[in-house]
Design a protein around this nucleic acid. Structure first.
Lengths: 158, 158
DNA sequence: CTTATTGCAAAAAATTTGCAGGTAA
DNA sequence: TTACCTGCAAATTTTTTGCAATAAG
């Protein structure tokens, strides 16, 4: 495990099990965004007997304790990442699926504006659009194709 | 159905079936955000034999043609709404689940800022946080409780 | 010792897909 | 007529839950 996570768990009376440590470590080592299945796969690399339901339960707990952040980046993209001191926001490219990060200071007047106009206190935001490369290419580009962004429709119509 | 939707479908060679008309009408009448199940329920109010898979297929088509917009507002909140001329963005309240709308001009310098700093061309964004009422109440409030925002943890620990 | 946790399997919930018959054009 | 569409049921996929056995503190 590492730093305060261990302490937080124990101080709150939760047990420090190897499964929890493994999930946490996988999350830290990856650095980026991981889905539950991915996390489970990484954990099972070393301990094949760890069950996916345990991973789900552990993630739920870690999110509840504020140690991990859960972000929904699209239809079926529910990712987890270690909660950092300085929270960041996400930019999801419709073209290549890439995920970029943005910090509060680069949000422009968004936070203040929403608070002023709607009384809305922003915690986190996710934006969809095209990254520099895809925008330049005038469309999709890259390795990770997004779901609904191909060239032509694949439906009916002769 | 209504206005250009009918035309768009037909011009592109798609058939104008009663099911498609019903889904479209349900979406227009509701005005707000509807999930696939909800749309299906509304349609079935008048035509009980319309199948949910047809609703899914119709939504997929309408989204593909740009007539309907699909927005993911959280873990399992995949909503649909008629695509408007002036696109808007969403603010989801972590407290009551309410969904507010924001237009481009109220985004502050976000669009320009992201383009300048990251070369990211914003199409749509969703922000999570607390609405005026919930923020004022210092926490959750309202009828539609959000998933992970209750008062105390319901996990273990004696 | 106590009981929070885990593993497993089965339950749920949400979409998607294969097909044969129905129907818009 | 023709082949796009629909209804139905079964298959997927993803997450949750019941329970007895296990192990953390």
């Amino acid at each position: 495990m590492s730093h305060h996570a261990t302490r937080t768990l124990q101080e709150l009376g939760y047990r420090l099990t190897p499964q929890r440590t493994l999930v946490w470590d996988a999350l830290r080592e990856a650095g980026g965004h991981l889905g539950a299945e991915e996390i489970c796969a990484r954990v099972q690399t070393r301990f094949p007997n760890v069950n996916i339901s345990t991973v789900y339960r552990t993630l739920e707990l870690l999110v509840e304790l504020g140690l991990v952040r859960e972000t929904v980046l699209g239809s079926d993209r529910r990712y987890y990442e270690v909660e950092e001191e300085v929270p960041h926001h996400h930019l999801v490219c419709d073209g290549c699926g890439r995920v970029l990060h943005v910090h509060n200071e680069d949000l422009g007047g968004l936070t203040a504006g929403l608070l002023r106009n709607q009384g809305f206190r922003l915690r986190e935001m996710t934006a969809f659009g095209y990254c520099r490369e895809c925008a330049a290419a005038g469309g999709p580009h890259g390795d990770r194709a997004a779901d609904g962004a191909e060239g032509g429709g694949d439906h009916a119509h002769p």
